[in-house]
Structure formats: structure tokens, C-alpha cells
């Protein structure tokens, strides 16, 4: 599904290398987790994959189902099936959540040569999805993320994911800021989407989320590289002992 090879990324305006050769392959139907110390480059990797400006790819490649996503505009990557749940979802005053989601969904459909969804069908769909995530109708009417609590913003990200039905879902610390119940809701939302045609890359600091969303593979990222890859037991090791041992072992 997603294949990242030797990815090197620096800041566009600064001589600062952030990703220093990331190699990562996520197969269809799989869930991979990335853990790693603060500042190791996890969010940068997710932003670069999603097409945010301000970065320069100096070497390496990233493909989604064989297509070179780094050559695409952000919206083309979305239409190709890539989705990033932001670590810090953006507030957009004046743009209603509903308008936003419908424009997004139809934008993707149009890019794929599909018909637009009717207003009625859209309403039915979003109501159903919002209900399972316990997002009330009032929240849908409000401007995107404005006045949402931290947890509401994260749930809203998952709602968007559920509506857009992407193939490759990247979740950047979606668990941070969530209370125990919300974490369960969000995990159920993610698990409901798990199937053979879809893959997940879950960035997290905590084992707790991985109790709910069981990963097939766990990676440790440090200083712009994947330094260790293992099974779910790797996350437990981090939870119990921190990164010191793992990093020492690598160096």
C-alpha cells in the first residue's frame, strides 16, 4: 500500500535535516504503529506524506499503491486515498463543518471521475457516522474545529476519516487529549474501518491506544530514522522501559 524508501527531508527555509533516511512499508490490511521520542520526526513524516508545504525532499521516494505521491498536490493525494488525522487539527472560523466535509467529499469524487453525492445522501451519511462517534448535530453545524475541545477535535478527525473512506490512514497522536471513553470510541471508529483494502499508520506515545487498535508491526523512530521494527511487544517494552535501552542498543 504505502512504500517509503530512504526518505530524506529538510526544511525549505532552513538548513535543517529532519528525516534522514526513512524506510517503511505498510501492506494493505495492516496496521503499523510508529513510536519515538519527541522531536524525532514523526509528525514531519506524516506532513510530508500529506503534502504540506515548507519541506524539501532531498532524497528517497514515497509511493501509494505504486503511484509517486510526492509528485502530487495535497488534494490529489487525498483523492488517491491518503488521509492524515492531524496531531493539531486546524480551526477554520467561518467555514461550517458540513460545508467543509461535503466540499471535500465531492472534491475527491470529482477528482476520481465519480458522481457528486446528493445533499440528502450526504446528510444521511454524516448523521449516521456522527452518531456512532457520539458527535452531536450541533457540533456539525459549527465552524470547523472552532470552539471544539481537544477531544472533540480528535473525534472530528475520525469522523472525517469515516466519511472520506481513505485507503491509507495516518493517525498522528489521535489519542492525545482523549479521555478513556473517547479513546474507546475513536478506536472503535478506526477498527470499524479496518479491512483488507485499507491500511493504517498510527503514531502514538502510548501503549493504551494499541490495546484497542492492535498493530501488526511497531516501529521506533529516532532522529529522523526508523531505528527498530518489531511486533506489538515492542510497544510494551517502550511503555515499561522508555526509549533509553532501545536507543542505546541501536547506537
Amino acid at each position: 500500500m504505502l512504500e517509503i524508501k530512504n526518505l530524506h527531508v529538510k526544511l525549505e527555509d532552513e538548513d535543517k535535516q529532519i528525516l534522514k533516511g526513512v524506510d517503511l512499508t505498510v501492506g494493505a490490511g495492516q496496521v503499523h504503529a510508529i513510536m519515538g521520542p519527541n522531536g524525532s520526526g514523526k509528525s514531519t513524516l506524516s506532513y510530508v506524506l500529506a503534502g504540506r508545504g515548507g519541506y524539501e525532499v532531498t532524497a528517497g521516494s514515497a509511493t501509494l499503491e505504486g503511484a509517486d505521491i510526492l509528485a502530487m498536490e495535497a488534494e490529489e493525494r487525498a483523492a488517491a486515498g491518503l488521509f492524515l488525522a492531524f496531531q493539531y487539527p486546524v480551526e477554520i472560523p467561518g467555514v461550517g463543518n458540513m460545508t467543509f466535509l461535503r466540499t471535500a467529499l465531492n472534491g475527491q469524487r470529482k477528482a476520481r471521475g465519480e458522481d457528486e453525492i446528493s445533499a440528502g445522501d450526504f446528510l444521511k451519511l454524516i448523521r449516521a457516522k456522527a452518531k456512532t462517534l457520539q458527535i452531536d448535530a450541533e457540533m456539525l453545524k459549527r465552524p470547523v474545529n472552532v470552539g471544539f475541545s481537544g477531544g472533540e477535535k480528535k473525534r472530528n478527525e475520525i469522523l472525517q476519516m469515516a466519511m472520506l473512506e481513505p485507503k491509507m490512514c495516518i493517525l498522528d497522536e489521535t489519542d492525545s487529549g482523549l479521555d478513556v471513553d473517547a479513546m474507546k470510541l475513536v478506536s472503535e471508529g478506526v477498527n470499524a474501518l479496518r479491512d483488507e483494502g485499507r491500511a493504517f499508520l498510527v503514531i502514538t506515545h502510548y501503549q493504551r491506544l494499541l490495546d484497542h487498535i492492535k498493530p501488526d508491526v511497531v516501529h521506533i523512530m529516532a532522529d529522523g530514522r526508523i531505528v527498530k521494527t518489531g511486533g506489538p511487544e515492542l510497544a510494551l517494552e517502550v511503555e515499561n522501559n522508555g526509549y533509553a535501552d532501545i536507543l542505546a542498543e541501536v547506537v
Binding site: 488534494e75 487525498a78 488521509f83 477554520i92 467555514v95 466535509l101 466540499t103 471535500a104 477528482a111
Partner: peptide, 26 residues
Amino acid sequence: DDEALFYLRSRGVPEGPATDLLVLAF
């Protein structure tokens, strides 16, 4: 707002319509 523009685009709204949404919001 570049952040807002990227957020919209990352959800599949092309740059033109995304800018229009932000103009209307303004």
C-alpha cells in the same frame, strides 16, 4: 491562512475552491 488552506487541501478540496471557502468565511 496557510494552515487552514493545507487542512482543506489535505481533505481533497483543490486549492481554488479551498481559497474560495476561506474568502467566503472572511
